[in-house]
Design a binder for these strands. Structure first.
Length: 213
DNA sequence: CTGTTATGCCAACTTACATCA
DNA sequence: TGTGATGTAAGTTGGCATAAC
C-alpha cells in the first residue's frame, strides 16, 4: 500500500458491535445491496455508503472462504471413507482370487487323475446327470462365473452335483457364495470371465489398475 | 447502427492496522 | 512488554455491463 493510503488507514476504526450486528442482520436477508438501500443503511448506521459497500464485499468474500473450507473438509472425509472401502475391497478381492486359484488347482488335479484312469472328463460328467451334460464343457471343466444375473447361485448348484472327487472344490465354491462378501450380483461378478480370471478394468487410473491387476 | 469512452459494480488479491494469546 | 497469529477495513486491479456520445 502506498504512503498516501497509509495515512488514510491511520484513521481507520473498527466498526462498533452495534454496527456489526446490524450489518450481519441485513446480510442474512440480502447479501447484496441496491444502491438506494446501501445509502439508507449507511445513514442508519452512521457510515459512508462506500464503507457499507466494502463491508458487504468483504463479508461475501469471508462467507465464500468459509464455505470453501467446509467443502474441503467434507471432501477430505469422503475421500478417507472411500479409501478405506477401497482397501477392504482390495483385501476381499485377494481372498477371493486365492480361493479361485485353489479351486482351479483342484479341478486340474481331478482331471489329470481321471485321464490317468482312462476316463474322459466329459464321459465322467455324463454319468452324473443328464441335466448337466448340456452345460458341461467337453475338454476341461471351466469355472463358469458369468454375469448372468444369477451369479454364484447357479454355479454352486451345478458344482454341488459333481462327482465325489470334486466335493472339496464344490464346497469351496459354496463357501464363496455363503461368505457374504458378495451377493453374487451381476455388478459384482461381471468382472470375471469364463475362466475365472478377472477382466482388466477399462481405466487408465494407475491406482485402480493396480487393484485389478 | 457501430465503435468508443466513462462509470459503476464486483471478485480476487493485497496491505496495514487492531487485537489477542 | 514484545511478538507472532489472526481478523478485518480498505486499497488495487482487472473484468464485465450499461449508458451516453
Amino acid at each position: 500500500m502506498k504512503n498516501k493510503n497509509k495515512d488514510k488507514n491511520k484513521n481507520r476504526k473498527r466498526f462498533s458491535d452495534e454496527q456489526i450486528k446490524s450489518l450481519e442482520s441485513i446480510f442474512q436477508s440480502e447479501s447484496r445491496l441496491e444502491p438506494r438501500r446501501k445509502v439508507q443503511v449507511a445513514k442508519e448506521l452512521g457510515l459512508q455508503p462506500r464503507q457499507v459497500a466494502i463491508w458487504f464485499q468483504n463479508k461475501r468474500a469471508r462467507r465464500k472462504s468459509k464455505q470453501l473450507e467446509r467443502d474441503y473438509n467434507i471432501l477430505g472425509a469422503s475421500y478417507t471413507a472411500l479409501a478405506s472401502r477401497f482397501e477392504s475391497l482390495k483385501k476381499e478381492k485377494q481372498a477371493l482370487a486365492l480361493k479361485v486359484e485353489k479351486i482351479t488347482r483342484i479341478q486340474l488335479q481331478t482331471l489329470k487323475a481321471e485321464e490317468c484312469e482312462g476316463v474322459p472328463a466329459a464321459a465322467a460328467a455324463a454319468t452324473n446327470s443328464s441335466e448337466t451334460i448340456k452345460t458341461k464343457p467337453k475338454s476341461r471343466p471351466r469355472i463358469l462365473i458369468q454375469g448372468s444375473g444369477e451369479g454364484l447361485g447357479f454355479m454352486s448348484d451345478e458344482y454341488l452335483g459333481m462327482e465325489e472327487a470334486d466335493e472339496e472344490a464344490a464346497k469351496l465354491m459354496s463357501d464363496m457364495v455363503e461368505d457374504g462378501g458378495c451377493d453374487g450380483s451381476q455388478e459384482d461378478w461381471g468382472c470375471l470371465d469364463s475362466d475365472g480370471v478377472l477382466f482388466d478394468q477399462p481405466s487408465s487410473d494407475c491406482q485402480w489398475w493396480d487393484f485389478w491387476a
